[in-house]
């Protein structure tokens, strides 16, 4: 099945916005998402490939519409949901 992330050579994409942002993160929440991912990876909570996989499994319209760090947040949220049985115990 086609995943939404596999963009190399895909037709239909226009000009690149080459403008440079003044700051590395546009919003503080983005920096926090970045850091949370680093911490969870370092703790071995999931691997980089599991993280990439979680992003690739986003619905294509979600992937296309979400901002970069919103994709990260969606992936992390999905991977850190507690199993229902555990929560009920």
């Amino acid at each position: 099945m086609e995943r939404p992330h596999d963009l190399g050579g895909k037709p239909g994409f226009g000009a690149i916005d080459v403008a440079e942002a003044a700051e590395p993160f546009h919003n503080e929440w983005e920096a926090r998402v970045f850091a949370i991912n680093r911490l969870l990876l370092a703790a071995g909570r999931y691997t980089l490939d599991e993280f990439r996989d979680a992003i690739e499994r986003l619905e294509p319209h979600v992937y296309a519409d979400a901002s970069y760090y919103e994709r990260w947040l969606l992936a992390i949220e999905g991977m850190t949901v507690e199993p229902a049985s555990e929560a009920e115990r």
């Binding site: 099945m1 086609e2 596999d6 190399g8 050579g9 895909k10 490939d49 990439r52 996989d53 690739e56």
Partner: peptide
């Protein structure tokens, strides 16, 4: 052939 699930072989190759 397309590989199922996560892979690092891009489709264009």
């Amino acid at each position: 052939a397309a590989r199922e699930g996560h892979t690092r072989l891009p489709a264009y190759l």
